[in-house]
Nucleic acid binder design. Sequence first.
DNA 1: ACGCAGATTTTCT
DNA 2: GAAAATCTGCGTT
Length: 198
Amino acid sequence: MSIRSRAVGTKFYARPTEEVARGLLGRILVSNIGGRGERTAGRIVEVEAYVGPHDPACHAYGHRRTARTEPLYGQPGTAYVYFTYGMHWCLNAVTEPRDFPAAVLIRALEPLDGLDTMRQRRRTEQDRHLCAGPARLCEALGVTGAVNGSSLQRGPLQVVQGTSPKKAEIVVGPRIGITQAADWPLRFYLKSSPWVSR
DNA sequence: ACGCAGATTTTCT
DNA sequence: GAAAATCTGCGTT
């Protein structure tokens, strides 16, 4: 099926972050991390936009260019993976032209492929919780800092075509878990999906 | 079903 | 030294 289609190209990511966020819903994230052909994949059902240096919740707020935020300044379509709360990894897709630091946080997937591998990595049998949350999906797909800065077109993690949802299926709301700009409506998810994080 | 505390370490002040 | 784009387990309702 669509899992075999081509990776989404640079032009897709080199646009306003909010558009890219909406556009990522329904696409498929494929991971070939872990050797031995342990392929895992899921349909993106929930995302958040972190729209640039003017966004107080963005890691690059005020153009804070540090070792951590460097990937945000790179090529659109780069994976930005950061570590937080002492134990969790989160995955973003870098957006906008090079040197404009913005990204889309991938928050939830509908598991499609490699479910057994996901269950092992997550140490759970509850499929509902396999990929419902930014840190959960990273654990399920084997995403760690090792893939930070890799290309989502050619790297071990790729975003491929999938099927676009109807506009009426997309729900907009405030981002989760932040304290700055907490009311900005930059979270997008699929209304009828049982796989979103909440 | 809901709410709260603890885990654990990087990053920046 | 404090906060952090989170998750889990355990408590109570």
